[in-house]
Amino acid sequence: MSARPLTLVLVSTPVGQLGSGRGGGVELTLASLVKGLVQRGHRLHLVAPEGSCSPVQDARVTLHTVPGVDQPSWQHAERNASMRIPCNAVLPRLWDRALELVGDGDALVNFGYDWLPLWLTPHVEPRIFHLVSMGSVSAVMDSAVADLARWDQRRLAFHTHRQADDFDLVEPPEVVGNGFDLSRYDLQLSTDGPLGWAGRVAPEKGLEDAASVAAGLGETLRVWGFVEDDAYARRVESAVPAGTIEWCGFKPTSELQRELGRCRALLNTPKWNEAYGNVVVEALACGVPVIAYDRGGPGEIIQSGETGWLVPPDDRDALAEATLSVSSIDRHACRHWVERCASQEGLAARVEAWIRKGLKPADGTIT
C-alpha cells in the first residue's frame, strides 16, 4: 500500500522575491521541488516574500506572501559577524505565517540559510526540516547547524557530501543532490559556439578568472546572471579588453537554456565551497561540457574527462588548457549524466524519503 500524501509548508528564502533571481540557486531548487512533489500527489503551501511568483499553477499549491525588508545574505557578511535581522524584516514574518499554516499539516521545510528557523526547530511542536543551501560561511550558522545535528540530525539535508563536510555533524549526512525539470532543457550538439559563464555576478563566483581565460584566448565570454555587485562587475570588465564580456542578464529558464546550449563550454570558477552548482547541471542538461575548479559541489558533480574537466582551484592556466581540450567531451554523455542523477522526479523522491524518515518519533536534546 502506498504512503498517504503529505501536506507540507515550504518556506522560501528571505533574501528576495521568488522569480527575481536574488535567491540564486535556491529559487531553481524550490521550483523543481514544488513541481516534483506535486507530481507525487502532495499538498503544498508555499510561503515567500511579497511579490513572489509561484513556480507552478496547480490546485495543490497555495502561495502565501508576506511583506517585509529582505534579509541580508550570509554570503556577504564577515565570518564572525553576529546574526542581524533588519527592522520590519521579512524573515520573522515568513515564519509567523508558516507556523500559522502548518495546522494539521505534516511538516515545514525551510529553504533559507538563516539562524532563526534553525533555532526555532527544537522549540516548536511542528516538525521543521532544513535543506541547507550553502556551505560554511558563518560561525553563527555553523554553530546553529551543529546544535541541531546534536538534537536531531534527521532534520537536516544537504546537496552534496562536500557541502556537508563543512559542518560538525554527528552522523553521516543526508545528501539529496538536486533536480531539474529536464523537459525544459534541450540537448544541443553544436561544438563551435562561444564560451559561457552563469551565476550571480558577485566576488565569490570568480567571474574575473573566466574573463581572464577568455581574454587570453581572444574570445568573447557570454555571461548570464543577476548582477548583485555592480562595482565588482565593472572591475571585472575593466580588467579585460573591451568586448571580452557580453552581458546577457538574468534570463528565465526557457531563454537561458536556449542561449546557454549554443556554447561549446561553460566555465565555472567559484572562489568558495559551492553547495551544489545548479548552473553546472543546467549546462550539462543542454549537452554543454563544464570546465570547473575542483572545489565544492561542482567537483562532486563533474565527471572529469566525461562531462567536462576539473582543474586545480584558482589555476587560470589549467582552466585555459582544459578549455582547449573540450572538443573531446561527448555532449550526449553530459545529458545522460543529468538524466541519471539530477532529474526533478529523483529529487522529489529523495526529499520525500528524507522527510518521512524524520517524521518517525525520536527524542533529542541539544548538548
Rank of each mutant, 00 (worst) to 15 (best):
V38W: 01
S32N: 07
P49K: 04
V61D: 03
G36L: 00
Q75H: 12
V47A: 09
G21L: 14
L46F: 09
S20P: 09
E27T: 03
P55F: 06
G51T: 06
W74A: 05
G51I: 06
K35M: 02
L44F: 07
P72F: 12
L44S: 04
P49F: 09
W74H: 10
G21E: 11
L18P: 04
V69Y: 03
G36C: 00
R60H: 08
R43P: 04
P49A: 04
T62P: 12
Q75T: 06
G21N: 10
A48I: 00
G23K: 02
L63S: 05
L18Q: 10
V69D: 03
A31P: 01
C53W: 12
V69G: 03
G21Y: 13
E78A: 15
S54M: 02
Q39W: 03
G19R: 08
C53K: 14
E27K: 09
V61W: 04
A31L: 03
V56F: 01
Q71K: 12
G68C: 08
R22F: 11
E78M: 06
W74P: 05
V69I: 14
A48E: 12
S32H: 02
G36A: 02
P72Q: 05
R40S: 08
T62K: 15
Q39T: 05
T65R: 12
Q39F: 01
E50R: 15
T62E: 15
Q71C: 04
Q71W: 12
P72M: 07
L33I: 00
P55D: 05
P67A: 09
L44Q: 02
S73Q: 04
V34M: 04
D58K: 01
T29Y: 13
L33G: 01
L37K: 02
G68K: 10
V47G: 12
K35V: 00
E27A: 04
Q57A: 06
A48V: 01
A59Y: 01
H45T: 05
L33T: 01
L30T: 07
G21D: 08
E27D: 07
P72G: 02
L28H: 09
T29R: 13
L18E: 13
E78G: 14
T29K: 07
C53Y: 08
S32F: 01
G24Q: 10
L44A: 06
V56S: 05
G68R: 11
T65F: 08
V38K: 01
T62I: 11
L63W: 11
A59V: 05
